[in-house]
């Protein structure tokens, strides 16, 4: 019993350590779509943000958006507005809100919510087609969102 408990708490510690002051998906507070406070308190890394945005298994933002600042991305999608100038149009807090859950800014938008864990119709277990159990893991973790936001604020015309 004791050793079992120990193992469980050790695991929790390992997972939770890098995110001591992390805001969990359910605790994010949106004010007219914007999220004022950093989700982690750790400054975002724009270079990793680019990686998140251009990797299929992560944000895959380029499935829908074009980004003039990233001319090497092959076949960006044409579904959504190009992100050039996003840092002029939106504040950091607004961008954090859009990436965490764009539905809070654009009602009914096609853009997926990257930091949302429940309330889905037939939630799946990733891309397996099998049932998932809510709360799901968010598509991006808190630091990945901060990294993406750190890149988006640099997109000035």
């Amino acid at each position: 019993m004791n050793s079992h408990l120990w193992r469980v708490s050790a695991m929790v510690t390992v997972i939770a350590t890098p995110a001591i002051c992390e805001t969990a998906p359910k605790d994010v507070s949106f004010a007219e779509g914007a999220v004022e406070a950093s989700l982690t308190g750790v400054p975002g890394d724009p270079a990793n943000g680019v990686k998140v945005m251009t990797t299929n298994a992560l944000g895959n933002c380029v499935a829908c958006h074009q980004i003039g600042a990233l001319p090497d991305v092959e076949f960006p999608g044409t579904i959504a507005p190009p992100l050039d100038g996003a840092g002029d149009r939106w504040s950091e807090a607004e961008l954090r809100g859009i990436v965490a859950n764009a539905k809070m800014t654009f009602e009914g938008t096609f853009m997926p919510a990257f930091y949302k864990v429940d309330g889905f119709v037939r939630p799946g277990d990733g891309f397996t087609g099998k049932a998932g159990t809510e709360p799901l893991a968010p598509i991006l973790n808190a630091q990945q969102i901060e990294d993406v936001v750190a890149f988006l604020v640099t997109l000035k015309e």
Binding site: P123, G124, G126, T128, G129, K130, G132
Partner: peptide, 9 residues
Amino acid sequence: CVRDTRAET
């Protein structure tokens, strides 16, 4: 197509 939405098909 449904699997691609991260859904239970």
